[in-house]
């Protein structure tokens, strides 16, 4: 799948809507603002990339959607989906029926997410049984079909293997099989850094598999790699808990407007490995004004004092006083 094959974004129906989502983690001495006032919607079928460095809040957003946050987390705002006004208010038993059926997560670190002591077929069977999709006498057939669905040409061989015998890319595909099962068509697939630690050659193949085989679902792809984000139709760049640039992926990555997006691209080996100076601020100690200003070469007095709101520039939203083409 090349960049030219990315289908144009044509929203048909809204799948999920986030309204002013905030996630905080309070402690005795301070409060961590992990996600700050994020509002957006995802439609089907479509692919959406959420790009940013570690600590920007990307995985926290995914965990919030799936209600996998620790108990002490404070969540404000609304997540509307699947006919429910706010998923966050849904009784947990009802919500549990949505997880793994209408919403599926493919977590980071595939080898850490698979049980090291069980063969692949045991692990796939266990999840199929939980979903109730699996008549016992057809177990082996169902496992093989699930593995075929994610691109394994010899599913019987893979089923007999242990996780440590798999490459990173293979383990990631097994997780995808575990997540989507045999014939389920989830509305939303959240892939959290699916290419981290995976060979360069396998990364493109894995993302292509995800986007092509599940083209009727909405894919939310979390990544720090601009080349992977470019394979999605839409994207958002996240920094210190808020979105700084959103819009069509190709447009953003070909002509980034926010200095942070420009910095991420410049850090890529193809563009000379120019790192962004400094580090992302601690969520418990965010700077005043623009959160990126301590690392920004365009910073001026206004950036230090005033917090920029998103503005529309060139058919995208950018949170910067100096957004320019």
């Amino acid at each position: 799948m090349s960049e030219k094959d990315v289908a144009p974004y044509e929203p048909s129906r809204e799948v999920i809507r986030f309204s002013k989502l905030r996630v905080l983690f309070p402690s005795k001495t301070h409060c961590v603002h992990a996600v700050d006032e994020v509002s957006f919607s995802l439609s089907a079928p479509s692919s959406f990339a959420l790009m940013g460095e570690s600590g920007s809040g990307k995985s926290v957003m995914a965990s919030t959607l799936l209600r996998l946050l620790p108990k002490e987390a404070i969540v404000e705002g609304r997540i509307s989906a699947f006919g429910f006004d706010n998923l966050l208010d849904l009784p947990i038993r009802r919500f549990h029926r949505l997880r793994g059926t209408r919403m599926v997560l493919i977590p980071q670190n595939p080898l850490g997410s698979l049980h090291p002591m069980f063969r692949i077929d045991t692990q796939v069977r266990q999840t199929l049984r939980v979903r109730g999709q699996l008549p016992k006498r057809q177990e082996e057939i169902q496992v093989n079909e699930a593995l075929l669905r994610v691109g394994f040409s010899d599913p019987k061989r893979i089923a007999r293997m242990f996780p440590h015998e798999l490459s990173g890319g293979m383990a990631q595909r097994v997780l995808l099989a575990v997540g989507v099962g045999v014939d389920s068509k989830p509305d939303l697939i959240i892939a959290d850094e699916p290419t981290k630690g995976v060979d360069a050659a396998d990364r493109e193949h894995l993302v292509a598999l995800l986007l092509e085989r599940f083209d009727q679902s909405t894919i939310l792809l979390i990544t720090h790699d601009p080349w992977i984000a470019k394979k999605c139709q839409q994207m958002a760049v996240m920094y210190a808990g808020e979105w700084v640039e959103t819009g069509e992926s190709r447009k953003i990555l070909d002509h980034p407007l926010h200095p942070y997006t420009q910095g991420l691209l410049a850090a890529h080996p193809r563009y000379g490995l120019h790192p962004i100076q400094g580090f992302m601020p601690e969520p418990s100690a965010l700077p005043t004004g623009c959160r990126f200003h301590p690392r920004c070469h365009r910073c001026d007095e206004r950036c230090r004092i005033e917090h920029p709101e998103p503005v529309s520039v060139d058919n995208r939203m950018v949170r910067c006083f100096h957004a320019s083409s």
């Binding site: 720090h224 850090a267 890529h268 790192p275």
Partner: peptide, 14 residues
């Protein structure tokens, strides 16, 4: 650097 973010990767390699 394969487990690191893109900007951190650039810092470490440099």
């Amino acid at each position: 650097t394969s487990m690191l973010d893109i900007s951190v990767q650039a810092q470490i390699l440099r």
